[in-house]
């Protein structure tokens, strides 16, 4: 093994070790009777439950339903957030109109808005997708606005001196220059989408991973409930890694911090 490969595996091991220790401690506590099953099922039971769900495939339709909701809300938020953020950065009037609204929604825990949206938009998927979109919109708009507003003036000058018209400068300079910040905002939106998705599926859903957690919890199937939570965490982690790997490939010109 080359020293580079060895250090890669050493790094991966070092990252996994704390997690493995926590899981081992959890299992030991359960087996020794320190942690009664009524409080928390053992890691082994949870893992077995997760294995059964994956083998039977029962988790698949719920995963797809959740993906569809989160994906729809997230997609709308990314597209709308970039457009709105750019408009805010370029048009004073839009900035003045949108900024107070944005600052108002910013600190509100978006899941708290779910009941309200259900009254307005019905209890179906539409209200869920809307809340997810609203929640994801905020980080994307803020990141896009900051990115587009913070473009180095020298870059704009450089472009103008090389013949770029004001009409084209958005495409040629502002957007690409803001891209690293936009990408960071979108990354936040991925996490937000998952959080709000699960909360929205707690209420009046018949499918989805949030529904699964809620219904298993309701019947006292704690091992199955925790299995879905762990599945969700793994899914979220994977999505984030995939996203970062994609960014590194597509934006090779940028030096990412991590």
């Amino acid at each position: 093994m080359s020293s580079r490969a060895r250090s890669y595996w050493a790094g991966a091991l070092a990252r996994l070790l704390p997690l493995a220790l926590v899981l081992a401690a959890w299992q030991a506590a359960s087996m020794s009777g320190l942690l009664p099953k009524a409080v928390l099922p053992s890691f082994g039971e949870v893992a077995a439950s997760l294995g059964a769900m994956l083998r039977s495939g029962e988790i698949v339709p719920h995963t797809l339903a959740s993906f569809a909701r989160a994906g729809a809300g997230f997609g709308v938020a990314v597209a709308g957030g970039i457009v709105l953020g750019i408009l805010m950065a370029q048009v004073r009037f839009v900035e003045r109109a949108v900024e107070p609204v944005l600052l108002l929604i910013y600190p509100v825990p978006k899941p708290a808005l779910i009941p309200l949206f259900m009254i307005w938009l019905g209890i179906g998927d539409f209200s869920k997708v809307t809340v997810i979109a609203l929640a994801c919109l905020v980080p994307v708009v803020i990141a896009t606005f900051n990115g587009a507003r913070g473009v180095d003036e020298m870059l704009l000058w450089s472009a103008r001196a090389r013949g770029t018209s004001e009409r084209r400068i958005l495409w040629r300079v502002v957007l690409p220059a803001a891209l690293p910040q936009i990408a960071a905002g979108v990354r936040t939106a991925i996490a937000v989408a998952i959080i709000v998705l699960v909360s929205s599926e707690f209420i009046s859903a018949e499918t989805g991973l949030g529904y699964l957690i809620f219904s298993y919890g309701g019947v006292g199937a704690d091992d199955a409930m925790l299995a879905v939570v762990i599945y969700l965490a793994a899914l979220g982690y994977l999505l984030d890694r995939l996203y970062l790997a994609g960014l590194r490939r597509l934006m090779a010109w940028h030096a990412f911090a991590h």
Binding site: L155, V173, P176, H254
Partner: peptide
């Protein structure tokens, strides 16, 4: 474009 400029930094487009 009749006047070309080179700054101390940031003349190039990083992307």
């Amino acid at each position: 474009p009749d006047r070309g400029i080179v700054f101390q930094r940031y003349s190039l487009f990083p992307w």
